[in-house]
Design a protein around this nucleic acid. Structure first.
Lengths: 217, 217
DNA sequence: TCTGCCATGTAATATGTTACATGATTGT
DNA sequence: ACAATCATGTAACATATTACATGGCAGA
């Protein structure tokens, strides 16, 4: 039951059309809750039917016409209640770990190549997160993001703080929370980079012989 | 497409009935690929139909009768091929992070309680993993698991190494891989414990006031 | 016999994925 | 007119979750 709440959150941060939402689910929101445009359109329909959101400029219900949605009070209430609700962390479900366990039984053919590939992907993701952190959340006296500086393509900057938000130190309460979420992403990627590096190091010195990956360059 | 391969792996490690598999998916296998008994029975049916596994002691196809499965050569081949295949890491999808992002918009009511609850759960899981590691994979000169010592309830010990496996140092190649998988679980839990601890520490010193959790004891 | 548990299964629903379809807008 | 792209949507399928149904077996 998370997707509708992800959409409500996104729409509260900024009213959007379906396609705009899709794009945002490829960047900031998508870093911890991904969704395709089909899921989003389906869910927008349900949310509208439930009275949680409504379409702005509701002229022409034509097919190719843009439709912007905004959250209604009932939607905000629903989201507020959901934030306070409980949900156990789901057990890990990772195909790579499963592959490794299978390799323990049928052999590691082709595995080191895949480990290297994943390592590269996680390193890239980590770098991207660190860029975002440097741009949106730098706190020190260094060259942080000045208010009006480059919005930049890719990840969206933190939305403008609501007027009610108290700007205590450098960061509002809302920004502090968003920074924490980003740091979870950073910590996760760092963990995978470390683990994959160690796994490959062990492979290189493994008794069976060297890795079977292409050894070019 | 991971569940069938998870089942093939489990059946290669030890032929089992549906319910036995279900139990193993609550312990060792389930630590990185969970599944319910309904999924397992459905998938066993498909795997049998595909000629990857077969039922042992195929007398009485009665309803309440136990049915043991073993992997056929075609199943092993399929699994070997899958190990060498590629699959991109899926983007993170974590309801807790989503909740946090939502809290940045509608307020943190009820959130610290949930963070504390998750912290306790992750600490417990981490402790469990460490117990398993100490019992099944201790390498140093300390009191490691002696060959015939307590199999213990709960998580299953590493299956007997196949005769072909070379026992080089203390660990076979297969055990080395299984240890790596376990360490991924440990690293993940440790990461969450650290992150949650930091998140709560920030909450405690947050400008808005103390946490809203019950402050008993 | 009745209860509880072991074991296998069906049904309904929810969610997620993949492929395709349709109309609107803009630039050439 | 045409192609490319924006934007919304349908359909079919795959996977996962929840609730329930059926039969066997063992002990009070």
């Amino acid at each position: 039951m998370s997707l509708p709440h992800a959409i409500l959150t996104a729409l509260l941060e900024r009213p959007s059309s379906g396609l705009e939402l899709t794009r945002r689910f490829d960047r900031s929101i998508g870093y911890f809750w991904s969704a395709t445009h089909q899921q989003i359109y389906r869910e927008l329909g349900r949310l509208e039917e439930s009275g949680y959101i409504r379409a702005l400029a509701p002229e022409q219900p034509a097919r190719g016409r843009k439709k912007e949605y905004e959250v209604l009070p009932a939607g905000r209430d629903e989201l507020t209640g959901w934030v306070a609700s409980r949900e156990d962390p789901k057990p890990v479900r990772d195909p790579l770990l499963l592959r490794m366990r299978a390799a323990a039984v049928v052999g590691t053919d082709g595995l080191p190549v895949e480990l290297r590939r994943h390592l590269a992907l996680h390193e890239r993701q980590l770098a991207e997160y660190r860029d975002i952190e440097a741009r949106d959340f730098s706190t020190g006296p260094g060259p942080g993001r000045e208010p009006g500086s480059t919005p930049e393509p890719g990840p969206e900057p933190a939305p403008k703080s609501a007027p009610r938000a108290p700007q205590i130190g450098g960061l509002s309460e809302a920004d502090r929370l968003r920074h924490l979420v980003l740091r979870a992403g950073i910590d996760l990627e760092r963990m995978w980079v470390q683990w994959l590096t160690e796994a490959l190091r062990e492979s290189d010195t493994a008794p069976v012989g060297g890795p079977d990956g292409t050894e070019s360059s």
